[in-house]
Design a protein around this nucleic acid. Sequence first.
RNA 1: GUCGGCAUAGCUCAGCUGGUUAGAGUAUCACCUUGACAUGGUGGGGGUCCUUGGUUCGAGUCCAAGUGUCGACACCA
Length: 920
Amino acid sequence: MELASKYNPSDVEGKWYQYWLDNKLFSSKPDGREPYTVVIPPPNVTGVLHMGHVLNETIQDILVRHARMEGKNACWVPGTDHASIATEAKVVNRLAEQGIKKSDLTREEFLKHAWAWTEEHGGIILKQLRRLGCSCDWDRTAFTMDATRSESVIKVFVDLYRKGLIYRGVRMVNWDPKALTALSDEEVVYKEEHTKLYYMKYYLADTVPADAVAAEGNVVHKDERGYYAVVATTRPETIMGDVAMCINPDDPKNQWLKGHKVIVPVVGRVIPVIEDDYVDIEFGTGCLKVTPAHDVNDYMLGEKYNLEAIDIFNDDATLSQRIAQAQQKALAEAEVPQQLVIALDRYVGMERFDCRRRIAEDMTAAGLMEKIEDYDNKIGCSERTGVPIEPKLSMQWFLKMQHMADIALPPVMNDDIQFYPTKYKNTYRHWLENIKDWCISRQLWWGHRIPAWYLPTGGFVVAENEAEALTLARQKSGNADLQPADLRQDEDALDTWFSSWLWPISLFDGIRNPGNEEISYYYPTADLVTGPDIIFFWVARMIMAGYEYQQLPPFRHVYFTGIVRDKLGRKMSKSLGNSPDPLDLIDRFGADGVRMGMMLSAPAGNDILFDESLCEQGRNFNNKIWNAFRLVKGWEVADTAQPEAAQLATAWFAAKLRLADEELADDFAKYRLSEALMTIYRLFWDEFSGWYLEMVKPAYIDGKPQHIDRATYDATLAFFEVLLKMLHPFMPFITEELWQALYDRQPGQSIMRDELHMPHATDDDRKLCADIEGIKEIVTAVRAIRSQKNIAPKQQLTLEVVADADTPQLPRGGVEALMKMANLDAVNTVAEKSAGSASFLIGTAEYDVPLGDLIDLDAERKKLQAELERVEGFLASVTKKLQNERFVQNAPAAVVEMERKKQADAEQKIAALRDSIAAL
RNA sequence: GUCGGCAUAGCUCAGCUGGUUAGAGUAUCACCUUGACAUGGUGGGGGUCCUUGGUUCGAGUCCAAGUGUCGACACCA
């Protein structure tokens, strides 16, 4: 078999993926084995693969393939999310490009377009996951809006409503004026902005007695128009909704305002001054304008003091006609100076930020603005559309969360569900302890429509379908003649997360069909791999749903990945253009190379600084494996006796593999996947290729490679197979390719199903590995001498072992191995080191290499002198420790003993070094 | 503002319940066009473990304060 000297991933990756699919190697059915279940965090149905996915999906695939090779029944369920608001926004945009406005379409027409878009773009990302090698059970592919999932969502809504956990009511919600929908608190992100703080004049509407004004501590404003209070705000346009001014009753500056009335500038409405200790005396002037319709805290004040809420905006955050009406009403009720009033008609229909600019200008011109200052503020914006949200009073559906928090907090706190890294337990607890009700209705069409029907006479019923709704409606209204057409279904859809919180259950049909074989077998799932940014959106809510509907956690472990950043630490983003296209990377480095590049620096929970050079490292590793394979498969086998060196090498490497397996098991148990990969990387590159293969490799005689003995050959292939299996979860493609080529395989066989079970390592294994480490140290020392003296690797040298009671006995075959690895012609035991030789110490054992003319006495002396100084320094620190009585008294005997040994060894080394220097 | 994480080689990070004058990968330097692999081999250099105190016989590791940095949450109109 002729093999190219370079591994070419594109030749093999597509081939083996198809092979895995053809042979149904990813598919899982309940059986007697232990299940290992992972549900994918469903990507947006119309999304495309980005680096964050690559990280996330690679980790899942590693865990799944690892479990599969342990003999578990691994089941990784893929699927996509309908992403209500994001997808609807995309569809609206696309329609806009075609000149179609959403408002011109009926719900049915719009949904037709949305489904068309979904079918056109849906599933692209799932295809891309195949390029990455993901071993999902594709027959199970689900969608949050497919029939099973949709029915599950509706069933849960009805159930929660009937339990009294879902209610409908008017509340202050986060309104997205671009998407024209309410949002949950979690969908609001705060952005730092440079804004202005406007100080506006609110003139007194009545007379203040002179003594009240004169009282000490008051800060009084007065101009030719009279007395006025100053109110600071970032949103001057909202004065149109002002219904009160509020001061802190203990604020000395504003005592004179108590019990009076002020005039809202521009608007002309006369409003009372109320008192509440909510107001911060230190902020601004201590005077707060109260606009209950447009601020959460003002809403609270409005409730408390029974104030009217004047909604000044339309749904798209343009100024409503209502402001003009309210002004007319106000002006009719009280007489106010003309100069304080501007007719509000001019602002009607204006966009909110235009209005802010205009009203600030108008007020300044009218002398109603005291001053304007720069101000840094954090503005709540819609996570999806990016526009500032508008607090708005609105009728919505809510889920009561206290009960959910009560069932979801304990299991995480007591580690029934384990978080990696554990720091997220704090974040989780904090959120659950301060939880608010979840606004679950969205003014969108793309999503699960709320199963509530309104009766013609008022009131509503909640039911799983129209027929059931009709029955309930007839009962409720007492009108047995009620017809379907008399009922009107709620127009709103549910929050996307109201379907994804059921994902681990609904994927196994556990909502519609409780206790079925699949849900009983696969649930709880094993590991969830996701980003900490959706800990509240998704993780916490899945835990709630899990306990509410299965009385069990949805998963046992949560692995939080970090954010993928570029090598400068910047978040990858489209606008920065610093995000590589994963498919392009796969084309260039192979999927295995990209997976390795991703995993090399991805400790759980830390952000990862992604650098293409890591993929290059992955590709190089592939090439290394490939070439090791070429070497081994190129050997010609003969039935000759196994050399002692090879006997030793095979025994050693077998032990090494057992030890490595234990290390890997530990890494996997702790989810330290990048460390596991690094362990295998070094095992393959350094130990196997660098040491083992070099030890057993047949020599060349007269330019011809010798044959290898069968025992060594067989052992080597077996080692290779174990290494491939260890590596398979990380690099599925090359390991399959080589596993298939290593031995004759039956059709349909795969490394994926070739379980890896290693015997435990023993103390003998550890001893043998330590012995080999000793040999490696000697080899390295001889190589260093070559390097320093510029002696060609081909030139043979002689090693002398200075015999001594402490000189370690090399294991059988050790000398032979040593000679081969260090290219020695002999290893002689001597009583005294030769003159003109370079010497070195391994532990306390002394070795030297006679160099004849090549010896540079000066350099040698310098080297030995430096070493002597180092050891003397070391000895000094050890001796100091041992002279400290308190150390000898207090430290454990074993520690003291070890220090004594170090002292003795150091002394011995020093003596040997002095001898060597003298001998020069 | 409240809470939390992190700070170790140029870079990215290990370093477990304190106990060899601190390790890996990568980068860098020197040498090597050897017969699996130059996407390679061999060897080398590189660290006041953020600062200051404390506990201890002993601190990279534990405690406190500070500095820097990142994040979560809460926000002042």
